[in-house]
Nucleic acid binder design. Structure first.
Lengths: 186, 186
DNA sequence: GTCTATAAAGCGATAGAC
DNA sequence: GTCTATCGCTTTATAGAC
């Protein structure tokens, strides 16, 4: 029965890609059955709450990934420069160097925003706090650290939007590179 | 018959708000009839191409606004500092200090991106060129100017996403304020 | 636990009266 | 130029066989 958990994870990954590609509104059950290889019956057996539950679990899964791979390392870090470099590398990896959209940002812009408002806010809030506390430890004032962390989050989101709009992954790479320098500045 | 043009503009404004609120996919004809006060018959009389034509004309209308109020002033400016301040003020006004989503960015993230790819790319490309040329005239190198203009566009988009995600318009105000300083730096 | 069949509602789009 | 009625299709969701 441990297999169940593993398989669910796999389904969530596939669901995530569908939501990323078509948005919450645009991700129809037809598209979802194709992406997961599961019939509607199986899907509603796994997710009795339907599409909303699917999206909620996908968002929770994403949150878990960032908690493990981004937020926690930020919190536990001793060396700010190394930690920031690791964060940037993790972000670059996660978003496939700008090819992959941020589902949390996408949900925030759409009409599903209200449904997932708390999850969306939490995702960014915890990121910002973890990063700001690291920057504070590196010598910045409380307000400087907070403002710089805000700038980091916003830069990543903006780079993802612009890279997609202009179909130029270089935008994302350049933005991350500049961001790292800005975060490490004295 | 001049009235016709005026009324069409009004319909396009209403359409724009529906698309902004629900995205291209989420903007159903029911929502559109409610927002415009027009029945389906009238809508298809005005826009024989249906929803796609509606969105295309809304995007063209937005493009026209930016051309007139942002790009052209940027191109014609003599005083870079004044021109950048004017751009920032115009952006702040247009996006209602972060309360209003950027439809072009929203379309870029969704699955309608391919349909409107050229329009979306053009919107950002012309903005970047106009801004970069101004920065060039203010003494920056070609690559510096281009990179800084890219940063400006990406910052605005990211600020809109994050402000909406966190439901905090202050994020947008702060981002614009910081951006102005960054653009004017030597 | 997965499937097919189907329900009920909503979708974009069209026809035709006025 | 605007309306109502309606078409054909797709949507989410359910029921029941296996």
């Amino acid at each position: 029965m441990l297999k169940k958990g593993v398989e669910r994870k796999e389904v969530l990954r596939a669901l995530g890609e569908v939501f990323r590609a078509h948005g919450y509104e645009g991700a129809s059950l037809t598209l979802i059955t194709e992406a997961t290889g599961l019939g509607k019956g199986s899907l509603y057996h796994l997710f009795p709450g339907g599409k909303e539950q699917m999206a909620a679990e996908v968002l929770a899964d994403i949150d878990g990934w960032f908690e493990l791979n981004i937020y926690a390392p930020l919190r536990d870090a001793n060396d700010p420069a190394r930690a920031i470099a690791a964060m940037i590398a993790g972000v670059d990896q996660y978003f496939h160097s700008g090819d992959r959209v941020c589902l949390v940002g996408l949900v925030a812009l759409g009409s599903a925003r209200d449904t997932f408002a708390e999850t969306v806010d939490d995702y960014f809030a915890r990121w910002q706090v973890a990063l700001a506390q690291l920057l504070r430890r590196s010598g910045l004032s409380r307000s400087q650290a907070q403002r710089r962390a805000e700038d980091a989050l916003l830069t990543i989101q903006g780079a993802l939007v612009l890279a997609r709009a202009r179909n130029d992954a270089g935008i994302f790479r350049r933005a991350l590179s500049d961001l790292m320098a800005r975060l490490l500045a004295p």
